[in-house]
């Protein structure tokens, strides 16, 4: 069974040093067979929540020139944080030692 959507975003981010939000969103939409603006915004909010909680860090940002999602939309580049990696271990999204915390 596929992981919960936020879990998929974390797993995907763990496979690269960093990714832009539109890249993550695109991969998630392919994975869960979804399309349309509603889901783009849905995954954007999920990324915001992950960043607020400290599981991922915003390491860059720029305005969309119209090629990613929509012109002048703010885009973020994310990287998984140490805490995010620990949470992935704790929640079984990543194999390894858990803190059980």
């Amino acid at each position: 069974m596929k992981p919960p959507q936020k879990g998929f975003l974390l797993i995907t981010l763990n496979q690269s040093p960093s990714l832009w939000d539109f890249e993550l969103i695109q991969r998630a939409m392919v994975e869960y067979e979804l399309q349309g603006h509603y889901w783009i915004n849905h995954f954007s909010i999920a990324l915001d929540e992950l960043a607020s909680a400290g599981l991922i860090n915003r390491i860059g940002y720029r305005l969309d020139d119209g090629e990613a999602i929509a012109k002048d939309r703010l885009l973020f580049e994310f990287a998984l944080s140490d805490f995010g990696r620990q949470r992935m271990l704790d929640t079984g999204l990543l194999d390894g030692v858990t803190t059980n915390d």
Partner: peptide
Amino acid sequence: NISTLREVKS
């Protein structure tokens, strides 16, 4: 201030 809610290892 509240764009990150926790003091965690980044």
